[in-house]
Amino acid sequence: MSFVEPMRGRGTSQNLPNRFAPTVSESHDDGWFQDVPAARVVTEVREERAKTIIARNTSPDIGFDRSINPYRGCEHGCIYCYARPSHAYWDMSPGLDFETRLIAKTNAVMLLEQELQKPGYQCAPIHMGGNTDIYQPIERDRRITRGCLEVLLRYRHPVTLVTKSAMVLRDVDLLSELARLRLVRVMVSVTTLDNELKRTLEPRTAGPAARLKVIRTLTEHGIPVGVMCAPMIPMVNDAELESILEAASEAGATSASYILLRLPNEVAPLFENWLHTHLPQRAAHVLSLVRQCRGGELYDSSFGKRFKGEGPFAALLARRFSLAVKRLGLNERDGREPLDCSQFAPPGQQMALL
């Protein structure tokens, strides 16, 4: 297998064909090849008028049944991102295309308001950020996430967020008001405390110190915040699990969770290339441990197994997490209580008399 050098500032320089592509092109050295630096790829954003904005699921291992994703693709460029294969549905590559050819749902705010106004709508917490990061760089100008939060606050609708961006602090005014009404919970994803590892693993995300500052600042504003240690990668960052939990707890996090590395579809070859490029001496061991956690394969999508894995390594990781959480008092203090759905009230609608 040949491995491709990464592109500076990007998670990958590869554009693997997506699994639906009818034909596949392969490069061939005809003797005229010139070893020149790869050209810089500029992020492009396509606008989309979505038909719906609230995605629903019935997965038994997911703690929410509805979610909002304002953007398709993610400029953060995390090489391990389980959402990369979704770009194949738009005939684009889960590789470089996923982080450079983005789609913004320009009518998301209007669609959300229309959905919440439907007479038969049943209120339950909406999760934002389940597929791609709602605070990736293009949110700075597009402000679709902020627009959705404004609607949810106006309708007194509960919401949960997950992000690895410091841009969430821009919306601390809205989040503070939602928190005062017991309508919000924020999870900050922290993968590593090592800046160099972060640089190659998640090239365009906030640094570890910035994410801990996010936890600290949100806590200071009375916003319930937790830490998501995700993904935990065998022999890459799993040794940091306790350190991440300790740092997040010290910053003010009151809840915690973790997810084992997931490598569905096209993510597996992309991650394997990353391993052989950045950790070549460890690559075989890492992949061996991943297979041990996934029934001999690089991925098992079975409900109940996909997030935590199985086998000795997965069991040890679960035990370490449980002991650290208990020692630090996480998942026992404030921040785990159900959000309040009883306040939901679409503006202008007459409330029932009985």
Rank of each mutant, 00 (worst) to 15 (best):
M1G: 11
S13T: 07
N15D: 15
P17N: 02
R19H: 13
R19K: 13
E26K: 14
E26D: 03
D29W: 10
A39H: 12
T52G: 11
T52Q: 15
I53F: 11
T58I: 06
D61A: 12
D61M: 11
S67F: 09
N69R: 05
Y71W: 10
G73P: 05
C74R: 07
H76M: 05
G77H: 04
H87G: 11
H87Q: 14
L96Y: 05
E99P: 03
T100H: 11
T106H: 08
Q114S: 06
L116T: 05
G120R: 08
C123I: 08
C123M: 12
I126F: 02
I126P: 00
R142Q: 13
C148M: 01
L153W: 00
R154F: 15
T160C: 04
V162W: 06
T163E: 06
K164S: 02
M167Q: 15
R170C: 03
R170S: 05
R170T: 15
R170L: 04
S176V: 06
L178E: 09
L178Y: 09
L181Y: 11
R182C: 10
L183H: 03
V184K: 06
V186F: 00
T192C: 14
T192N: 09
D194T: 04
D194K: 13
K198H: 07
R199T: 07
E202I: 14
T205F: 03
A206K: 00
P208M: 08
V214A: 05
R216T: 01
R216P: 02
L218V: 00
E220Y: 14
V225G: 02
G226P: 00
V227N: 06
P234T: 07
V236E: 00
V236A: 10
N237D: 02
A239N: 12
L245E: 01
A247I: 09
G252M: 03
A253H: 01
S255T: 08
L260H: 08
L260E: 03
L260W: 02
E272Y: 05
H278R: 04
H285M: 14
V286S: 02
V286D: 08
L287D: 06
S288F: 12
S288T: 09
L289P: 07
R294M: 03
G296F: 05
E297N: 13
L298P: 00
G309N: 00
A315F: 01
F321D: 00
R327T: 07
L328H: 09
P338D: 00
S342H: 11
Q343L: 13
A345K: 15
G348R: 02
L354T: 09
L354W: 01
